[in-house]
Design a protein around this nucleic acid. Structure first.
Length: 411
RNA sequence: CGGGGCGUGGUGUCAACGGCUAGCACGAGUGGUUUGGGACCAUUUAGACAGGGUUCGAAUCCCUGCGCCCCGACCA
């Protein structure tokens, strides 16, 4: 993409009402725009990051054997009344149609939709186990939206639902899902800071599990066991007597963290009210056992910015960066265009700064936007025999031949 | 939902005593000079959150509403 085609502009200063690092940098660099508290537009650069994250998650979900669907955001009151959550949830957006006066909810989660859906397809043990997921915007009427894109009223979530004939089968799937989550966070570049965390369980299982990414911007407190690389959410630390549930280690490290994912064993909590049942081998009817598994996409994006930035701007992990290469043209348009074409042909995602602005502005914008590799084409670099290559997270640049640079970046 | 802070052009501003034409910087437009760290000159553009009140006079004081941010509570 050519930067001259980007309608967004960078800003020297963040709006004064944004305090959180993720909001400041994402707005300054033109990744997002705030519409109102807790709702943000994704702009071209931001959407590219979003799609990178989305694709990592999608690939891993598919590898887990789940198939993707897309359920409606606009939902009937009746479904929410079946589970009692129409009145129970205080952060469910509810409203009436202006014309018909019929009540609707905006989806805060999709158990109420996915269970009746599966009821139309699941009848026998032969239909199980199965799993389905979607990546979709959720609405929660948060009393207080906060921390930039980390806690919004509209946000994107990947929600996976699994359906089983037995608790044992759910347990096995749950383990696999947890492994898959670790892979997702690893691939997205925040694996090192993300911990499998014991959390309060809800009605049917003793504990649920969260994936908590250590960051000062987080609103949860976790206690980390460095031996096992797991953590315990502060909310259940007294239950566990401040000890690692896996090795008994009592020397836990306390950190603030962002809940980027969670996994729950729902058992029959939702299959029961909707009467989602199957016939077993003996022909007797049983309730389907369920699990649900979420990842917050906005949170993943926001926490990456919180984790990876410096005083000049964002430093994206390559796997979720909007582009791999920021190609800067300093008065060598013809040569820069050629390099741009070659990189593009080689399948490298590149943003070409073809704008007619000063070198200083180009460098400053490049640092702010945070693309992993910066390639400068200038008189100086050409005289030295090629282009100048610099990683965003390194200080020193080096001159490399154009062919070598392409080979290097192609991998 | 409780508490606190803030609201001045597109952005920023610990700019402005209750008083003269609301200042400065950035941005944007135009003309020109520039091109390795947000370059320079000239010129133009654009503003008091909304409503009410006090006052001869309100950006400034008071009230109400709205919005945003922060702390806490909440987060199925």
């Amino acid at each position: 993409m050519k930067q001259s085609q980007l309608f967004t502009k960078t800003r020297k200063e963040a709006p004064k009402d944004e305090v959180s690092v993720n909001a400041q940098l994402l707005i300054r660099a033109g990744f997002v725009d705030k519409l109102m508290a807790g709702t943000y537009s994704f702009l071209p650069l931001g959407l590219r990051v979003f799609k990178k994250i989305e694709n990592i998650i999608r690939q891993e979900m598919e590898a887990l054997g789940a198939s993707e669907i897309l359920m409606p955001t606009l939902q009937p009151k009746e479904n929410w009344e079946v589970t009692g959550r129409w009145t129970q949830l205080d952060n469910l957006f509810r409203f009436a149609s202006y014309y018909s006066k019929i009540d609707y909810a905006l989806g805060a989660t999709h158990e109420e939709i996915v269970v009746p859906l599966m009821k139309k397809f699941v009848f026998s043990y032969k239909d199980l186990p199965t799993a389905t997921f979607q990546i979709q915007n959720k609405f929660r009427d948060e009393k207080r939206a906060k921390s930039g894109i980390l806690r919004g009223r509209e946000f994107f979530m990947k929600d996976l639902y699994s359906f089983h004939t037995s608790e044992k089968d759910l347990d096995e799937y749950y383990e696999k899902a947890a492994k898959t989550y670790e892979k997702v966070f690893q691939r997205a570049g925040i694996g090192e800071q993300t911990y499998f965390t014991y959390a309060s369980g809800g009605t049917f299982s003793k504990y649920s599990h969260e994936f908590q990414t250590v960051s000062e911007a987080g609103e949860d407190l976790i206690h980390i066991c460095d031996k096992c690389r797991i953590a315990i959410n502060e909310e259940i630390i007294t239950d566990l007597e401040s000890k690692c549930p896996q090795c008994g280690n009592a020397k836990l490290r306390k950190e603030k963290a962002v809940e980027t994912g969670n996994i729950f064993k729902l058992m029959t909590k939702y299959s029961k009210p909707f009467e989602l049942k199957f016939k077993d081998q003996e022909g007797s009817e049983k309730e389907v056992i369920m699990g649900c598994y979420g990842i917050g996409l906005n949170r993943l994006m926001g926490v990456a910015v919180e984790l990876f930035h410096d005083e000049r701007g964002i430093i994206w992990p390559a796997s979720i960066a909007p582009f791999l290469v920021h190609l800067i043209n300093l008065g060598q348009t013809e040569e820069a265009e050629k390099v741009y074409q070659e990189l593009t042909t080689a399948g490298v995602e590149v943003l070409l700064d073809d704008r007619d602005v000063s070198a200083g502005e180009k460098f400053a914008d490049s640092d702010l936007i945070g693309i992993p590799y910066r390639v400068v084409v200038s008189k100086k670099s050409l005289q030295a025999g090629g282009v100048e290559l610099k990683k965003r997270n390194e200080k020193e640049s080096k001159i490399v031949k154009i062919e070598d640079m392409i080979i290097l970046l192609k991998k």
